[in-house]
Amino acid sequence: MAVDSRQIEQFIYREARLADENAYDEWLAMWADEALYWVPANLDDPDPSKHISTIYDNRSHLEQRIKRLKSGMAHAQAPVSRMRRVVSNIEIAERPDGIVEAQSNFVLANCAAAIRTSSSAARSTGCGPTAPAVTISSKRKCCCSTTTALSTI
């Protein structure tokens, strides 16, 4: 099956928008059951069994992350950060097993709370099966700088 680049791009933009809007449930629904959301720490591609990660979430942990954010008691996100994720340089490749790998750059802008304004540039790699519907099975987000933005998704 040929990859529909436009569909994948729209999927990535949608994911960014839902995260921007703190639409946690809709965002979570984009993930596959076998989800792995990985933000390595210190290095771009360390062995997570031996090296600390900033985020190393399976589906269950990701759900707990969302639940906590929605509780209103995640103080670093009360009030929620107003952010914009700017995604570019999207490269898409389909693997023989039907998994589509998409890489992109993104810049995260924290638009509120001037005293805590920060931004980070990062390279994000996500992939998932194209059929029947696109979901994210794994995502690796390599951050060039850690920010308060990591207190959300």
């Binding site: 992350r65 670093a76 990591l150 207190s151």
Partner: peptide, 16 residues
Amino acid sequence: EDFYGPAGFGQPDDGE
């Protein structure tokens, strides 16, 4: 990772 670090379930709230 669960509790600490910039994306943990505890440490960011302390920083806040």
